[in-house]
Amino acid sequence: MPPPADDNHRRRKPTLNRRDLLHGRLWKLVRLPDRPSPVMRYPKTRDDVDNSASESKTAPPRSIGGIAIEPVRPTLFDESPPAKSFPIFRPPGAVEESQFLAGCTRCRDCSDACPHDAIVQAPERLGQVAGTPTIDADTNACLMCDGLPCITACKPGVLNHSLPKTIGTATITEHLCLAHHSTTCTVCSERCPTQGVIEVTDGKPTINEDQCTGCGVCRYVCPAPENAILLMPLFNRPSLPR
């Protein structure tokens, strides 16, 4: 069996440094067969995105030898704790979840406006969320259409043209992706509606998570036996001034 080609760690020749040798980490010399390199993935939040954008402009956090010496931010007891809610896919331009739940009238105007039947009502079992609009990419993905008629249709304004249109993030689970198993497959990159988000190098797709809108088209079209696209809704969305 030819080892299905190249992650970087497999292309590299296995080597030992002195410390490895001292600790007896001889298994490092064994060339491991194809396996996913374990990656801890955290859901992306709106705050992360905002920080990363501003970070480049401001000075980096102070550090000595890689150890941060910025003072720890004091705990502010007068700040109200965030409302308890679980992440769910909302149509583009949705406000922060507690505002959304408070403002959404469950009128279904947004789902009626969706030309692709992508916006559906959250099922009963979801408690307080039931009846609010959501998107399930496994059934029908959001195509981020021109003009976003769902937002225009929203009378209470919990979908708002002034808010970012991102609804989540997609990542590729490499050990499920057929392109990472030596066969040709380029469907996700071809059908992604946002240009430049899914790039293919050496036949293997990677998702640029900063630009991904989370529309879920890639998950909808993925033909791998077990869907290789992991789709996560945004955890925190910006609020509108009350």
Partner: peptide
């Protein structure tokens, strides 16, 4: 862990 990872990966040699 390796075993389960390999099980998940098609075409593994483990």
């Amino acid at each position: 862990f390796l075993k389960s990872a390999a099980m998940a990966a098609a075409g593994s040699m483990v």
